[in-house]
């Protein structure tokens, strides 16, 4: 297992380098002179030139990239153009909020998705199965930002059960987590259903039935355990879109997380902030994928991932 993790860590090094390269190139893609943009409107020629030298923008691109990488490794993601504060400081304030939102959303994705999937698979083609699958299909099709607004309208404005926006208490977490987790839950439900139906057809389940085991023992001990393997992969993949989805959900519910920070930074053209935010979110995603791969191996020892 230890060797496997080391091997996977080595494999993600080129991916991380690639991600830093893309994030670095964002700056190069900005039309016009980067130094002029960074200096802001109305800056004097001298200031622009000074900035160009300070940031090494007068050097060849490969040198700029190398110095960017060495800064990133040292935890220097540059300074915000808005308030000149280090980007990393801002990210360290925002990231825990986004991770908390992501955690509760993935919890909803897994719990709701599994329950719905099992209900469907236990009585295939029954009304409960069809009902769950229709809801799941709707869950995949509803834009999260619309679902968020609808939930906010019903539960915060009309019923006044939950707060409209913000991130101060447990009550604030409920609606954003449901909004963000719903789409994933729908996908997990569909995956659990098809995976369980496949497992239920296997010989060992028939044997278990023939032995006279109770239905719940068959479902939970035999079928679900084996059906979970592909579901774990789906949950892992969902984490990516979930992390991307925080951008929208944080904007709907006015949550000061990493996603909202990136969107605000794009609006104000605070490019170092965008670069830092995108880089950190992607690194989190890469490491979560590593975690999922490791869990996959723990759950399914038959598969040799090496």
């Amino acid at each position: 297992m230890f060797l496997f993790i080391i091997k996977r860590l080595l494999q993600i090094v080129p991916v991380i380098l690639g991600v830093t390269l893309v994030v670095f190139l964002i700056m190069q893609m900005v039309p016009g002179d980067s130094a002029v943009i960074l200096a802001g409107e109305g800056a004097s020629k001298e200031t622009v030139e000074q900035l160009r030298v300070d940031l090494g923008l007068n050097k060849p691109m490969h040198e700029q990239y190398i110095s960017y990488i060495s800064n990133v490794v040292q935890g220097d993601l540059g300074n915000s153009l808005k308030n000149n504060q280090p980007v990393l400081d801002e990210i360290l304030i925002r990231l825990p909020i986004t991770m908390e939102l992501a955690f509760f959303s993935i919890l909803i994705t897994v719990v709701l998705g599994l329950i719905a999937g099992i209900i469907s698979a236990v009585r295939p083609y029954s009304y409960s199965d069809i009902g769950v699958m229709v809801v799941a299909l709707l869950g995949i099709s509803l834009p999260s930002f619309w679902l968020g607004i609808l939930l906010m309208y019903v539960f915060s404005i009309k019923l006044q059960w939950l707060p409209v926006a913000g991130w101060d208490s447990t009550a604030h977490i409920i609606l954003p987590a449901i909004t963000l987790g719903a789409g994933g839950a729908a996908i997990v439900a569909r995956m659990t259903r098809s995976s369980m139906l496949e497992v239920v057809g296997q010989d060992y389940i028939r044997t278990a039935k023939a032995k006279g085991l109770a239905e719940h023992v068959i479902i939970y001990k035999h079928a679900l355990r084996n059906a979970l393997i592909p579901v774990i992969t789906v949950v892992g993949l969902q984490f990516g879109s979930l992390l991307g989805g925080t951008v929208l959900v944080e904007s709907v519910f006015a949550i000061n997380g990493l996603g909202r920070m990136i969107v605000d930074a794009i609006r104000t053209r605070d490019i170092p902030m965008v670069q830092g935010g995108v880089l950190v979110a992607s690194l989190v995603f890469v490491f979560v994928n590593l975690l999922v791969d490791t869990m996959y191996r723990v759950f399914n020892k038959r598969i040799d991932l090496n």
Binding site: G244, I262, V274, A281, S282, F285
Partner: peptide, 20 residues
């Protein structure tokens, strides 16, 4: 693989941040 390492619409966001 690198393009897929960007979670969700974040790659799209990064591109828009550059292009406007």
């Amino acid at each position: 693989d690198v393009m897929l390492a960007f979670p969700g619409i974040l790659l799209a966001l990064a591109i828009i941040s550059a292009l406007g």
